[in-house]
Design a protein around this nucleic acid. Structure first.
Lengths: 142, 142
DNA sequence: CTTGAACCTGTAGTTACTATAGGTTGTATA
DNA sequence: TATACAACCTATAGTAACTACAGGTTCAAG
């Protein structure tokens, strides 16, 4: 019975993250404590690669460590349903959309300022970007 | 000669941020150390409101504390030009656009998973969201 | 005078990593 | 077998940008 085993460096490489991050995820409770060699080195299996990949992808999608813990609980424990995952994913998609909207609003405002800025040769006193931001009240642009 | 003066709480309220944040910005070098009352309370002027507003708006636009320091140096010191501000703003706009693109890519992927998920009644073993994320290699969706 | 809000400084905590330091283990090579 | 070096270990501190807390002081109103 020969199960593929990885060192932590190999695991990290396969999941495209850092060794320290694996340590961190273990300490945070996302990754289980693995068996060790006699010398104390961690030994991982292919399932750990999958789990770490899952964590990384969830992070990329903006799920917090806490949320990922919840998702992993759905996977690890019986009596959980796809519906629970879908609910979390739907909220997350909403969150991402909100962020996109916010960034687009900021982008518009910033581009407006950039367009009005003639750039070369003008002093800061005449800079429309500074003029738009360095004021007491809210900018009048809408 | 009566110049309007604000306590730190009033300043924070007018600039829509917290007192602790003002402390933090002072320590970080963004806000100057203001004059004090005999009792040691900080006293601010209208120009400080403008400055703090500037800092807040720059933060909203995603400029880092370090970048804001640079921008404030342009404002505070002579011999700086609008072009320098425009250059920073342009890079920032590019950065924001990149973030929008990234988020939209993630959003697409996530929505794809959500659509495929029938939700109610299915166990985790049959969840397309988990199936897409909990794998060794990269997802095949493009 | 009393009371309570607002202020002060300094320190620690939050989130999610990331770096560093000092020591041990494992492997390859001579 | 000895050596050298990469990879591993644990523990602690640092990063960025705040935010909270603790204990004490000041200020203003009743």
């Amino acid at each position: 019975m020969k199960t593929t085993q990885f060192t932590i460096g190999q695991l990290a490489q396969r999941a495209k993250c850092k060794v320290e991050t694996v340590h961190y995820y273990e300490k945070s409770g996302l990754m289980p404590e693995p068996p060790r060699t006699e010398g104390g080195h961690r030994l991982y299996a292919l399932s750990d690669v999958k789990r770490l990949n899952f964590i990384r992808r969830c992070r990329e999608l903006g799920f917090s460590i806490k949320q990922i813990k919840d998702l992993l609980k759905f996977i690890d424990e019986p009596n959980h349903y796809c519906g629970e995952v879908k609910a979390m994913a739907t909220l997350q998609a909403r969150d991402i959309q909100q962020k996109i909207n916010d960034l687009q609003r900021l982008q518009s405002g910033l581009n407006e300022m950039i367009i009005q800025c003639k750039g070369e040769g003008f002093t800061i006193d005449n800079c429309p970007i500074i003029d738009a931001l360095y004021i007491v009240d809210e900018p009048l642009i809408k």
